[in-house]
Design a protein around this nucleic acid. Structure first.
Length: 185
DNA sequence: CCCTGATTCGC
DNA sequence: GCGAATCAGG
């Protein structure tokens, strides 16, 4: 874009009229970034910015680590077996930082599994009583869907003993390391 | 997703 | 100097 005197004048006029940068860009057949950039260089009166970039907030803000592509390991919900076979994690789908813990079961309110408990509580007629939760079967925490999206959930099927995943997902999650002796061959 | 304006930085 | 990319908020 060649900023002729005429173009600059038109920019100034449109800017003074209070048009948005994008609108000015459309009228001058240039990008809004060109408009913003030029207006900034001309030191035209700034518009109320929707964003705050005060030095304090900027100083506190972390450099925002670049998103690393590739799989992320879900945290293990179950402790490793003492004599567990040597395994190594294979590629896994991305997972949010919040994996279901043993104390925060996956089932949402009003799932069939939860109704008995809710009924037990609401049917209570003799004042406050300790609510005893049924022993819980650890559920598979294999992430399904895109973390952060409404449909994201965890598998939820019964997990294998001392493993965070159900059978099929443990199959995917773990791959047996070859015995060292084979490597020496 | 759309929109907004501000800043950065390679050109 | 330029402006695309990026950021940040509505």
């Amino acid at each position: 874009m060649e900023w002729t005197d005429d173009a600059i004048i038109r920019l100034r006029n449109l800017w003074d009229e209070g048009l948005s940068t994008a609108e000015i860009g459309r009228r001058l057949s240039i990008s809004k970034n060109s408009v913003v950039g030029k207006a900034h260089r001309l030191e035209l009166p700034a518009r109320p910015s929707p964003i705050r970039r005060d030095p304090a907030a900027a100083a506190v803000r972390e450099p925002a680590p670049r998103r690393v592509s590739g799989p992320t390991l879900p945290s293990l919900a179950a402790p490793a077996e003492p004599e567990a076979p040597r395994v190594v994690a294979r590629a896994m789908p991305p997972v949010s930082a919040e994996a279901p813990s043993d104390r925060a079961p996956v089932p949402r309110p009003s799932t069939p599994a939860m109704r008995p408990m809710l009924a037990a509580v609401s049917g209570n007629t003799s004042g406050p009583q300790p609510v005893r939760l049924a022993p819980r079967t650890p559920s598979c925490c294999w992430p399904i869907g895109e973390p952060g999206t409404p449909n994201f959930r965890f598998c939820g099927d019964p997990a294998l003993a001392n493993k965070p995943y159900c059978g099929p997902h443990a199959e995917i999650a773990y791959v047996r390391v070859r015995d060292r002796r084979e490597d020496v061959a």
